[in-house]
């Protein structure tokens, strides 16, 4: 430190002042964090935990179900949309782009309201065509809205990944005389999916966080149960517990993604020195 000062006094003075501000800021954040943890630990009330802990756990299960169902259905929908995005047919590409742009350009809350209350408005028409059972339940509506939303994002991920496979791979396959579908299945998709793992993982994380929106349309997911408990107890600490649940889920998902990616990309990693 002394060496730096003797070299350029004004710069060093400036830097130390910056570090001081930084330290103050960091310690403020640290204090807030410690305060929250302290309040949480302090507020553990066994009686309340016993009467409401079950509700929170139930809500957590609903959230997990919601995310898995939406992701899977969304993945199914995303395949034709991605194909449309890659299509050379102007009309097909246009429709796919419109779908994707609408669901990516508007807030998920608004989409959820549109589907939930919008379907309610057309209940008699929906009953006539026998679709009402699907839209009657708030959880189904949430799954539909989330699935459509994530389908738009997943289609972008998928089509982007396919586009990023180098042209030469396609040409090589054509030179070997493989026909189109075989090329797609054996050559393009395996490479595309490997590069899409990380974005897919991010999408799962985003969906997990966004799933809290379902609570606004009466679904008792983790967020819905937490709000219910808060409205009974006026105890803010339940929100922090819910936050911990969400954070833990996100951590687990991102670690899983790292593991899967490490496993699938082991052939492209630089060879370690240990290998003879």
């Amino acid at each position: 430190m002394t060496a730096v000062i003797s070299e350029a006094p004004p710069a060093a003075a400036k830097r130390s002042s910056i570090t001081a501000t930084g330290l103050v800021l960091i310690s403020i954040w640290g204090l807030i964090f410690v305060g929250i943890v302290w309040a949480l630990v302090n507020s553990v009330d066994p009686e309340r935990l016993a009467s409401y802990g079950g509700r929170i756990a139930q809500g957590f299960v609903v959230t997990v179900e919601l995310v898995i169902a939406s992701m899977l259905i969304g993945a199914l929908i995303s395949i034709p949309v991605a194909a449309g995005r890659l299509s050379t047919n102007r009309l097909v590409a246009g429709i796919a782009f419109g779908f994707s742009y609408f669901f990516r350009g508007t807030p998920l809350v608004a989409q959820t309201f549109l589907i939930y209350y919008g379907a309610g408005q057309f209940s008699s028409e929906l009953k006539a065509v026998g679709m009402w059972w699907l839209f009657r339940d708030a959880l189904n509506c949430a799954v539909i809205a989330f699935a459509l939303n994530t389908a738009a994002y997943q289609a972008e991920i998928l089509s982007g990944a396919i586009r990023n496979v180098p042209r030469g791979q396609r040409e090589g396959a054509a030179a070997l005389g493989l026909h189109k579908w075989l090329t797609l299945r054996k050559i393009i998709l395996p490479q595309a999916l490997v590069s899409a793992i990380r974005p897919y993982g991010n999408e799962v994380i985003l969906m997990t966080k966004a799933s809290s929106i379902a609570s606004i349309i009466t679904v008792l997911d983790l967020m819905g149960q937490t709000r219910y408990v808060f409205s009974k107890t006026y105890d803010l600490s339940f929100y922090f517990w819910a936050a911990l649940f969400y954070l833990a889920t996100v951590e687990v998902v991102s670690h899983l993604v790292n593991l899967v990616e490490a496993r699938l990309t082991r052939h492209v990693r630089p060879p370690s020195t240990a290998r003879g």
Binding site: Y117, A119, G120, S123, R136, A138, T218
Partner: peptide, 11 residues
């Protein structure tokens, strides 16, 4: 308002 909407839609 919200439950009224859902009652009239038959939900």
């Amino acid at each position: 308002d919200d439950y009224k909407l859902d009652l009239s839609s038959g939900r």
